[in-house]
Computed example of a mutant assay.
Amino acid sequence: FYGTIELASVTKDKKYNMELSQVLHDAKEQGLPNHWLPICEDNGSYYCLLPNNEIRYWTNDGYSDETWLNLADWIKKVWIEGN
């Protein structure tokens, strides 16, 4: 990971709290839309990859209007420049 952001990872260690299947399970329990893939957890909210390649920020109290054009845009603006 870089700075304060740690991406969800595919690992054999299912007890790892940022293991993708666990992040997905936790997000779905909070109501994340089925077609959204959480790539990063942020204090109970999630950065998600959508089918159209956008990244959207989702909070468990509803949708946020924060969006990025694609993963590269999110990496630059949030992960690198935000840290």
Rank of each mutant, 00 (worst) to 15 (best):
W36Y: 15
T59I: 03
A27K: 01
G44S: 08
D61E: 08
P38L: 03
E66T: 15
C40N: 11
Y46L: 00
I5S: 03
T4Y: 02
V78H: 04
L37N: 06
K77H: 12
K12L: 13
S9H: 07
E66W: 05
S9C: 08
F1V: 14
N53Q: 12
N52Y: 00
P51C: 03
S45I: 01
Y16G: 00
W79Y: 06
S21E: 11
G31R: 03
T59W: 00
Q30C: 12
A27L: 04
G3I: 04
T59D: 10
S64D: 15
G82K: 12
I5Y: 10
C48A: 06
W68S: 12
L50E: 02
W58V: 02
L37P: 00
L49N: 12
K76Q: 13
Q30F: 01
A27T: 02
W79A: 14
L49D: 07
W68G: 05
I75Y: 08
E81D: 15
K12F: 09
Y2M: 09
T67F: 00
C40I: 03
V78R: 10
D42C: 06
V78Y: 03
Y57Q: 08
L69E: 15
A72E: 15
E81G: 00
K15V: 15
K14D: 11
N53T: 15
I80N: 05
Y46H: 08
Y47I: 00
L50N: 02
E54I: 05
H35E: 09
G44C: 04
C40R: 06
L49A: 07
T11W: 05
F1C: 09
C40D: 06
L24W: 00
D73L: 07
G62L: 02
H25N: 09
A27V: 03
C48G: 08
D26I: 11
N34E: 10
L37T: 14
E29K: 14
W74G: 10
N43K: 05
L49M: 10
D42A: 03
L20N: 04
H25E: 14
L24P: 00
Y16E: 13
Y47T: 07
E54A: 09
L24T: 15
Q30L: 09
D26Q: 09
N34W: 00
Y46F: 12
Y2H: 12
E29R: 09
I75E: 06
N43R: 07
S45Y: 05
K77G: 10
K12T: 14
L69N: 14
D73F: 05
D13S: 11
R56G: 07
V78F: 06
G31V: 07
D73T: 13
E6R: 09
F1G: 14
N17M: 03
W68M: 07
L71K: 13
N70H: 10
